[in-house]
């Protein structure tokens, strides 16, 4: 009997494709962000507000994932920017190959910012590298303050937490300080912004974070 050490990630094939994407993003100076949240936390609304804020000359594109329907792509396409829906048919996350396919037909030289809206799920998307420069977790105040403790992996791997729907704070028993404390327990240095896509409060903080990321040089290695 022989023991053969492998020490290989189970998802090494996905990681290999993601590394290829990351290289292509770096070559074309594209900032790619992977937005992850529970279903209904407001990823699409946040993207709608984000796209609205951009001048039409901005070179921005969106890939949006869902299990079924083209609804999100239709909503986001109203912005006039290129948007493509990835319908997974049942898979609960996007993987690097789906991104590779989704990008087919787009000239990457004409994109500066690629926003990926993952399938609404806090579990599986955290395992799949999509070649992004950063993961962003969206967490809304209609959820429990303990969400970061329940789903630590995604909060640990995200560079930014967007605490969304803050316009609803007067109507829901949500303790913002407790939620932030829980998030910091999982990821001490995570940046946090508080937003409302209805009143637009805090959207400036999110947009400035985005602008700061766009100025950073593109890393060739994965950021987790």
């Amino acid at each position: 009997m022989e023991r053969l050490p492998l020490e290989r990630k189970v998802l090494s094939e996905n990681d290999r494709i993601a590394a290829g994407l990351r290289e292509r993003f770096a070559e074309n100076d594209i900032l790619c962000l992977n937005l992850i949240s529970s279903p209904g936390s407001g990823k699409t609304s946040l993207l709608e507000r984000t796209l609205e804020s951009f001048d039409p000359s901005e070179r921005v594109a969106v890939l949006t994932g869902d299990i079924q329907t083209e609804n999100d792509a239709k909503r986001l396409a109203r912005s006039g920017f290129p948007v493509k829906q990835i319908t997974t048919g049942g898979t609960c996350h996007l993987d690097a190959r789906m991104i590779e396919k989704g990008l087919a037909g787009w000239n990457l030289e004409c994109i500066d910012l690629l926003l990926i809206e993952n399938v609404g799920n806090l579990v599986c998307p955290s395992s799949y590298d999509l070649g992004e420069a950063a993961k962003v977790v969206v967490f809304s105040v209609t959820e429990g303050e303990d969400k970061p403790l329940k789903y630590p992996s995604i909060f640990f791997k995200s560079q930014l937490m967007v605490l969304n729907k803050i316009d609803l704070l007067p109507y829901v028993p949500f303790d913002v300080e407790l939620a932030v404390r829980n998030a910091r327990q999982i990821h001490r240095d995570m940046e946090i912004v508080r937003t409302s896509c209805q009143t637009r409060e805090g959207l400036g903080d999110w947009l400035s974070w985005l602008a700061r990321q766009r100025k950073k040089p593109r890393a060739a290695a994965p950021v987790s």
Partner: peptide, 18 residues
Amino acid sequence: DAVFSGGDELEIAYLEVE
């Protein structure tokens, strides 16, 4: 007061071959 530092591995550790 502690911070999370790991425990989210998903790896093939080794194979046993005859």
